[in-house]
Amino acid sequence: MTNCKLCKSEQVNQFSELETIIYKESELSVEMEYSVCENCGREFVSKQQILNNDARIRDAKKVVDGLLTSTEILEARESLGLTQEQASLVFGGGRNAFSKYERAEVSQSASMDKLIRMCLKHSNIFHELLTEAGIKIPQEQLCYEHNVVSYKLHKAANQGRFNQVSTIESIEERAYG
């Protein structure tokens, strides 16, 4: 809890209110935190509240810009099975990049955002980036591009490169594990 800097009282209440900000001609409603001292009535914003408010504003702007929010980046990284350090190796951006993205301390670039989205949609691209980063791919993670249903009447010229499966259901089970 924060003490009042004016009267040193510990009786400080925290509040939040929706504030409207204008960004790229859009009105955004963002929840903003602040504190009020019960003793002297002083209204102030603590350092942590400033950080929280900045993060909320940054995430609201990301929505307008069509970028992943900090929570969505965290969820994407976790769904890809990466630590923050591994994600930085795979996607670039520096040693602490994903920590900062996930805390909404900084915004990712549009190209970083696109790369994360591509890896979520296309496991072959993700596996290629893992390999380049020197991260081992578990064998049970198969990519649907390498599975093919065998057709009795026709054979593909490159069919020998692929793992044969018997039904479409097997493909889905192998691709999404």
Rank of each mutant, 00 (worst) to 15 (best):
Q159H: 10
E78P: 10
I135Q: 01
E128Y: 05
L153K: 15
Q141R: 04
Y144G: 08
I137M: 00
L129W: 06
E105M: 01
L153P: 15
K114A: 13
L82Y: 06
Q141T: 05
A157G: 12
L80D: 10
A97G: 15
E85I: 07
H154I: 10
N147S: 09
V149W: 02
A76W: 03
H146N: 09
L115V: 12
G160E: 00
G94F: 04
M118S: 15
Q139T: 01
M112L: 05
Q139D: 00
I125S: 14
K100C: 05
A76R: 07
I125E: 10
I73G: 09
V106G: 08
S79Q: 10
A97H: 10
E128M: 02
G94K: 11
L153D: 14
E145H: 09
P138G: 00
G93C: 09
N124W: 06
Q84W: 01
E85Y: 04
E75R: 08
G81V: 05
I137T: 05
R161A: 03
Q84L: 02
A76T: 11
Q108I: 03
F126R: 15
V90S: 10
K152Y: 03
V148R: 13
L74R: 13
V148D: 06
E145D: 09
H122S: 11
L120W: 11
C119H: 13
G92E: 06
R77K: 08
Y101L: 04
A156T: 08
K121I: 14
G92R: 07
T83N: 09
K152N: 11
L115A: 13
A157I: 04
K114N: 12
G93W: 04
L89C: 11
S150N: 11
Y101E: 07
I125P: 14
T131E: 00
